[in-house]
Computed example of a mutant assay.
Amino acid sequence: MDKLRSIAVAVLVTIALFGAVSQAAAEEYYKGKTITIVVPHGPGGGADRVSRLLAEYLPKHLPGSPRVVLRYMLGGQSLVASNWFYNSAPKDGTVIMTGSGVVAVNSLVKTQGVEYDTRDFPVIMAFPVGVITYANGGKVPSATEFFDRSKDLIYGGNPMPWTNTIHFELAKEVLGFEVANSIHGYDTGTGRTAFLSGEIDMTVEGVAHYAGSIMPLAEKGEVTPLWQSGITGESGKLERLSMISDVPTVREFYVQQFGKEPEGETEKVLNIFEWYSAYIRTFNKPIYLPPGAEDILAHLDEGVASMMSDPDFQAASEKILLGAQIYTGESAKKVRADILANSEEAIPWLRNWLSSEYGVKINE
């Protein structure tokens, strides 16, 4: 018994010493250093908001308290930043990148000019961001009237292959409606302005932006919410976002309108749409290390875990996520791997659809 007790004490001492050594090693590694967060889009967007959040809170929790700064690298619909990060970023943990939906889409379908594959980026954490499709309440008083009125509506959104417009055009494929015109030329800010001015009649927007400026109009009946992307839940399936829990997913909207589940080719396209939504929305704002920097995760995980338990960080992140779950560490890697394991049919279909229907140039 004494021998077993001695072994147990020795193991506990070893674990404690290892933890202390690990803490000291992590602190020594980042002490006096600066971490640069590469942001592939301009100030004011979702990637910028997430990057600023990390710049504020990560130094408080990462051992060694490194300085964190942002570096905006714009151009080529995120290709300038993503290609540089893949090919040239230091692999010592001093440079990380905030991804985005279009960063992921470009990688998945290999649009012209892509030199990277996001599946090679070690993921530190991932911020899910859902989207909602809504219409002018004066022209579409209720969702049940949408199909009768859609041909008179003008959609406005981002250029292809930005994710909000892919979401809208895929929904058209599934639901089988037509609109008077689809304008693919707005950014998030100008698209919202165009909607509010009556220049366009419907659009797709991130839920955080919707909650801030559009939801009050919906409560007055001036805007009609139609459908949402959903977010991958603990069940592994798309679930409604809690902030807009009264708004159906595309599958639910289909069943509400037609009284049955889709079949045949429609079901196939819907499955692809749901796979796309699961991946792009769940990993909408991932935080990456460059390829080959996997060992650096050991220096970051403890700080990220500490940050996640910080009530101030939780409150600040909630304004962006609105109830969605942040994935970190092993859970982030597992969710990404699980979703990508079911991509065999979806990626070739999306490549062909974007190229043939919308002229998106694809690498051969």
Rank of each mutant, 00 (worst) to 15 (best):
T282A: 07
I287C: 10
E239R: 00
V269N: 08
R281T: 12
P248L: 00
I287W: 14
E252A: 03
Y254N: 01
I280S: 08
F258M: 08
R240V: 15
W275G: 10
E267M: 11
L241Y: 04
V250H: 03
K285Q: 09
R281I: 15
F273N: 06
S245N: 06
F283V: 07
V255D: 06
E261Q: 12
L270T: 12
L238Q: 07
Y288C: 05
T266K: 12
R251E: 15
E234Y: 14
R240K: 15
Y254L: 01
W275M: 05
P248M: 01
V255H: 06
T249M: 08
V255N: 06
I280M: 06
I244H: 03
M243K: 11
Q257L: 07
E239Y: 01
E267H: 10
T249R: 07
V250S: 02
M243Q: 13
A278L: 04
Q257G: 03
V269E: 04
Y279G: 01
N271G: 14
Y288K: 04
Y254C: 00
P248H: 04
T249I: 15
P286S: 14
D246G: 03
I272S: 01
K237A: 11
E261A: 10
L238R: 07
F258W: 12
I272V: 11
E267Q: 09
L238F: 06
F253K: 04
G264F: 05
I272L: 00
S277W: 10
I287N: 09
I272P: 02
E265N: 14
F283G: 08
F253R: 08
I244V: 13
Y279R: 00
T249F: 04
V247Q: 05
R240C: 09
V255Q: 11
T266E: 02
Y279T: 04
K260R: 13
R240D: 15
K285I: 10
P286N: 10
Y288T: 08
V250K: 00
P248Y: 01
S235G: 12
F283Y: 15
Y254V: 09
V247D: 14
V250A: 00
Y288P: 06
Q257K: 13
F258I: 12
G264C: 10
V269W: 08
K285C: 03
I244T: 11
E234L: 08
